[in-house]
């Protein structure tokens, strides 16, 4: 896509997201579905509090969550040269789930403690995957990390299974299950402040290194011959994006498919070069997650877990992309 056309497209996308954001502020079940008109904010104190204390932080977190999951998905797919990779790939999602479950059972049920525990175990899973990949003595860098990620993910998944098994079925098990289904129903300004540093570092690093990601997607010998410090540059990008994804997962629960499907859509519209597809994927992901969250809180009288909606919409889009002619990815290496 030509530069001018791309810039115009991105500007339009940005404006579209702004409109979604503004509309999302006013839609909901208060005072009655589908929402409120703007003037009510000046007249109704409860409406003002609802918007300022609940909807605004929730919308901002939804936007950041979509941005980070999409950025991490784009980066992981390119670095691992595998279009089926998403942020949970290195065991991070299952690690965070284990952290949340163990906190609900044994540490404390305070949201901050659950978030810290989920972030800690998400990062621990990332570290374990990386350490294991160094210890494996065969295969290239990509294969070793894939194998390590699968193994670490399975270990933490087994751990979550054990914790669910021993959890009190009336009090603790529903809480773990609801966390695993994913949702932003309890997000506050404090949660936003908790994830903001991780998210900003992840976004800035991916944005400034976006062209370099193309280079890191080439064969090791070619990338080396073009001056890339492969291990160092890949680690910088992986750690910052995956840490941001772990932090956001700690407050949202397991939100699947965004990090897998949005990079595909972005590459299809804007081309394969990460210089263009990554910023677009971040905006698309942010918008997608905000809309999915709007649906989660407005479709039914009770809230639908966000993870269920993103999975349903994401899987539907994925099937459409797979059977449409434009879904072309070479897997010859």
């Amino acid at each position: 896509m030509a530069k001018d056309k791309y810039n115009r497209f991105l500007l339009l996308l940005g404006l579209g997201i702004l409109v979604v954001f503004l509309v999302s502020v006013f839609i909901g079940r208060y005072p009655s579905p589908p929402g409120m008109l703007p003037h009510i904010l000046f007249e109704d104190r409860l409406a003002r509090q609802l918007v300022l204390n609940l909807r605004l932080p929730r919308l901002l977190v939804a936007f950041l969550l979509g941005m980070i999951l999409s950025a991490a998905g784009s980066v992981l797919q390119m670095i691992f040269r595998n279009p089926l990779v998403e942020p949970g790939f290195l065991g991070v999602t299952q690690g965070a789930a284990f952290g949340a479950a163990i906190s609900i059972l044994y540490f404390a049920k305070h949201p901050l403690v659950i978030e810290l525990s989920a972030t800690f175990f998400g990062l621990l899973a990332l570290g374990a995957s990386y350490y294991l990949s160094i210890r494996i003595r065969y295969g290239g860098w990509v294969l070793r990390l894939i194998l390590s990620g699968v193994a670490v993910s399975a270990l933490f998944s087994a751990g979550v299974g054990v914790l669910k098994y021993v959890a009190d079925p009336l009090t603790e098990l529903p809480e773990i299950t609801f966390w695993l289904l994913g949702g932003l129903y309890s997000v506050t300004w404090r949660d936003l402040l908790f994830v903001l540093p991780f998210a900003l570092i992840g976004i800035v690093v991916v944005y400034v290194m976006r062209w370099r990601v193309n280079l890191l997607s080439l064969n090791d010998d070619t990338a080396f011959s073009l001056g890339a410090s492969l291990t160092r540059e890949r680690l910088i990008i992986l750690i910052t994006t995956v840490a941001a994804a772990a932090a956001l997962t700690s407050i949202s629960g397991v939100i699947s498919w965004v990090g897998l499907i949005v990079p595909h859509i972005s590459r299809r519209i804007f081309g394969a070069s990460a210089e263009k597809s990554i910023p677009a994927a971040m905006l698309l992901g942010g918008g997608f997650t905000m809309i999915a969250d709007d649906l989660a809180r407005t479709l039914l009288a009770g809230e639908i877990p966000l993870g269920i909606l993103t999975s349903a919409i994401g899987a539907g889009l994925f099937i459409y992309l797979m059977i449409s002619m434009s879904f072309k990815v070479r897997r010859d290496g």
Partner: peptide, 21 residues
């Protein structure tokens, strides 16, 4: 890398870059 360039025997390009990209 400013001194030596390489065209390897097998160079797979996993994503659909345009030639100029």
């Amino acid at each position: 890398s400013q001194l030596i360039g390489l065209v390897p025997q097998f160079e797979s390009i996993p994503f659909n870059f345009s030639v100029i990209e």
